[in-house]
Design a protein around this nucleic acid. Structure first.
Lengths: 189, 189
DNA sequence: CCGCGTAGTGCCAGTGACTGACACTACGAA
DNA sequence: TTCGTAGTGTCAGTCACTGGCACTACGCGG
């Protein structure tokens, strides 16, 4: 039953998220995921390159949104200020999809193999951000450095925000970037 | 032939590095590695948890050396200055093992699955550095932020050094950290 | 209404990473 | 010599993942 193709994909993602949550990633087989989604194991691998990838479908959208935000930022802004806009945008998206992204993050955090994949995705993401900065005229080297350190800082801010949701993500972002400024300013004596 | 056990391990690492280099990671089977090392496939998995891990045996030593360097740094230094000492130490080790680490890095760079594992190792490494900073009294949050951004900066410096070996790694480290200072200082207008 | 191409799928056989269980052998200590 | 232990070989088995081929729903031009 060929359906739309897109629907099978969504059902597979949903089934995988549930099963990984219920039994854990390691004790879940791709055949089980396919069965719950009402398709064959073979079809699973037609939609996702491997057992981990099924949880990382939205990553590309997030990356594109951030890259667009970097491209759309007004001229004359410093690299970190440009990135900050992209990070705020990512925060919006994260919050909007919270009901889906929360169990997802829980499963990833509990599974080394999935954390590994997440790090790889972040590497792609920072490379895309660096490339977007270069298109704005930021120097070859500086763009990569800004993207990676900026992303690490953003990641810390998000972590702080998840621990203390009483304050907005934007506040945490400002505070964490201020921390970074403090770290660099005091060093090199 | 039970030998020392440590020798089989080394032979497996050597055989894996050679085969990954000759045919590529994907077209090499663990059985082939074991055969070239003169042992059974089962023995391969007794020494290494998986097909990738065989290339990452030395990572733990590097991490321990850096952690020791952080712990041994004199009191009163800023977090980034402490890390800088650890990075210089890592540079020494890297350079000393260059004949082994060069083909290794080439294989890793050519194989997505191995790059993924490398990122995971770096995550462990930065977490260890953060913990070492905390033991020096650096704040919970700040330690993690410093370790991650510091490591990213170090990584860029090493990259720059590999591209331009005419200057010492230390120079590249200083320069890259200066770049980071510039990035943070100019932002937040 | 009918062929017809295409995209999505099912089915099946196969490879290769990895595991558990058990037996065997070298080697050092009692 | 005996015995414990660490390292290994052997074998059977699970599961992620792939290639090939046939089938079926759907859209489109006739």
């Amino acid at each position: 039953m060929p359906r739309s193709g897109e629907e099978a994909r969504r059902r597979l993602q949903q089934a995988a998220l549930e099963l990984y949550g219920e039994r854990g990633f390691d004790r879940t087989t791709t055949a089980e995921i396919a069965a719950r989604a009402g398709v064959t194991e073979r079809t699973f691998f037609r939609h996702f390159s491997d057992k981990r990838e099924v949880l990382f479908g939205g990553e590309a959208d997030l990356r594109d949104a951030m890259v667009r935000e970097v491209a759309a930022a007004p001229d004359g802004l410093e690299p970190f200020d440009v990135l900050l806009r992209a990070f705020r945008k990512a925060g919006e998206i994260l919050e909007r999809n919270r009901p889906f992204s929360e169990p997802r993050l829980a499963v990833i955090a509990a599974t080394p193999a999935l954390r590994e994949r997440e790090l790889a995705k972040h590497a792609y993401l920072t490379e895309a951000l660096a490339e977007a900065l270069r298109r704005r005229g930021v120097g070859e080297r500086l763009a990569g450095l800004a993207a990676q350190t900026g992303w690490a800082t953003c990641h810390h801010a998000v972590q702080a925000w998840l621990d203390d949701s009483s304050r907005a993500l934007d506040e945490h972002l400002d505070e964490t970037f201020a921390d970074l400024r403090g770290l660099t300013a005091e060093a090199g004596a």
